[in-house]
Design a protein around this nucleic acid. Sequence first.
DNA 1: CATGAATGAGCTTTCATTCAT
DNA 2: TATGAATGAAAGCTCATTCAT
Lengths: 202, 202, 202, 202
Amino acid sequence: MTPRPDVSAERTVQIVEAAIAVFSRLGFHKARMDDIAREAGVSKGTLYWYFESKDAITKALLQHLFEQEVQEVTTVLAAEGSVSERLLALTQQLAGRLEQQEQLIPIIHEFYATATRDPTVQRTLAGYTQAYRELLAAHIQQGIERGEFHLADAEAAATIIGSIVEGLALLWMIDPQTVRWRDTFPLAMQLLLAGMRADRKE
Amino acid sequence: MTPRPDVSAERTVQIVEAAIAVFSRLGFHKARMDDIAREAGVSKGTLYWYFESKDAITKALLQHLFEQEVQEVTTVLAAEGSVSERLLALTQQLAGRLEQQEQLIPIIHEFYATATRDPTVQRTLAGYTQAYRELLAAHIQQGIERGEFHLADAEAAATIIGSIVEGLALLWMIDPQTVRWRDTFPLAMQLLLAGMRADRKE
Amino acid sequence: MTPRPDVSAERTVQIVEAAIAVFSRLGFHKARMDDIAREAGVSKGTLYWYFESKDAITKALLQHLFEQEVQEVTTVLAAEGSVSERLLALTQQLAGRLEQQEQLIPIIHEFYATATRDPTVQRTLAGYTQAYRELLAAHIQQGIERGEFHLADAEAAATIIGSIVEGLALLWMIDPQTVRWRDTFPLAMQLLLAGMRADRKE
Amino acid sequence: MTPRPDVSAERTVQIVEAAIAVFSRLGFHKARMDDIAREAGVSKGTLYWYFESKDAITKALLQHLFEQEVQEVTTVLAAEGSVSERLLALTQQLAGRLEQQEQLIPIIHEFYATATRDPTVQRTLAGYTQAYRELLAAHIQQGIERGEFHLADAEAAATIIGSIVEGLALLWMIDPQTVRWRDTFPLAMQLLLAGMRADRKE
DNA sequence: CATGAATGAGCTTTCATTCAT
DNA sequence: TATGAATGAAAGCTCATTCAT
């Protein structure tokens, strides 16, 4: 008669978080369902009660991460100030995020790599990156209209910013010793914004 | 008893190229040694005659790919003209290369992702990206000394260019429909170069 | 506090009938307790309230089926007329039953097959087939005593009739296209009865 | 250079025979691939080198048995003498075979039971039983033409004989204590043959 | 040098059963 | 009585690697 509290939601989170921990430690392919179960403090069967498969856990995990990311970017870009200022603020925001989630970057890249061979993954990821780029593009367009930037193609500029984010994270993953994200990202943005402000004619 | 010619070298290349084909088709984790053997037209045992393990093939493969790349970049940057012109020429060069090697991008990303967990891969890849960045940095430094750029940190600028290359390739992999590498990469370089030429003061 | 009516009996039947439906559809080994629960419209826990295990459901199911069968055979054989006539009537009866219960035949065969390895199943099934054969034997014995049949061993003859029933059902299960039970079973009985009536001397 | 002798054929037989032993002991569903491997004295991997799956082993096994059976029946029926005599000889032959293969009968029935749910199994089994029945039918037809039998439908008679064979084996499987195959099968054939010889008019 | 049969640890997923509520 | 979340032992299959020939 006493309805048990619905633990479904928290169990799901619990499992996803365990998966994040295990994937961070071992990577997707070396992580076994047993590892995730042990980390989550539940049995292997419970994993399958809440998720269809290992892949399903992975997808939930990444969805979780991407949603957070788009959300944060939205918030930062909604602040006061010139578009340039907001974009520079974004670099700080993302630098912080990267530092927090260091160990997740390889998982994300493993997942990226599967996009070419799995249309569902492809579509999901493309959806997120498009949302991201559209968000940036809208702000850049605003900057163009306000006369802040001299630029024809806001979309392309947005893609370039996205590329720098992803590319720096990637180089950092390959070579964390030498690549200094914290300084380099703001510099990149400064140079890019300077270029966008400049009256180029060639 | 005429000594047979040493077929070692060509067998090695044959196997590496088979591995490239198979990895492209299936990805690293789904590619079986049997697949590579069949593709190379040799037996599985032969694979192990020339390579210690699947990982060893992988490393040879990466070497194969990156050596070519660094070589080409070196050549392009050795051309006549201002540093800006040479860097813009580089964008053309790399765009062409990307188009030719579409199918390799996901493999390379799989390896990037493993770098965090495999120190050998890490070291190999870091070595290549460093070589790449140093090459760029040297040219940018030249540009600074000639007064072409107003910039303190040639290394950071080199990293930024590298990031754009890698980041655009990544976004294109995720979303080939929307990301237009051919146009975006030159634009990125133009904006960046404009920024590097500008007298920034903040 | 009016005592609720005992729903035990109807729940039991409800579950057994659900099991029949599910086993028919999927076979014993592929049928999961979840499937039976869903089919019965109860929870999996309820299944275990009424039955100890999947095997217990199975045994109840077999009982359910065989009790009906022995009952019907008894009724048909209790009719008026010569033993031959009654046995021929039985063929009509069984042919009809087979047609109604087409989907049950494979399940029954799965249980037959397990008899060798499960003494309980063995005993249960052997009990039913013995009851069946004794019933037939009693009637055949009557036929012998009345001079209708020239035959020494009523038991063996009963077993033969049982064999034809089971064997035809089996062949029909294997090859429903070619085996025409409706015609073949009466013919078999006619030939057998003719043989039983004949004065054989070898 | 010295070609190794092809052990493929004998390995296959070795595995099938191990499977027969294990299936006899445990039944199809309880038999694990590990059990078969251990019994055959090879590794589990070797099983999969020679057979695609557990099912494939089962099918090879049964094909083996059925082919033998049809072969033996063909041989016995090719003997001298009246059709009646040959059919009676067949009962001896099959009784011997049954005794030898006692433990295989449950496996065969497990397989029969799957026919309804697996069209491939269905087709295979139907093929064998048809071959069997056609063989019998041809001989019975001969008996009809020679005036040995008074009978319209040789096919149906063949099916009846087949039913008795299968049905007796089935009842014996269920109740080996009470069903006496050795005596009952010849009696069944005698009664049936007597019926086929008799001038029936009802 | 080359072959390919053989190995066996490892992994995901299934599902009968239990038990707190 | 009834529920359904939780359990965990299985089991089929894969595949990098080895090694006798």
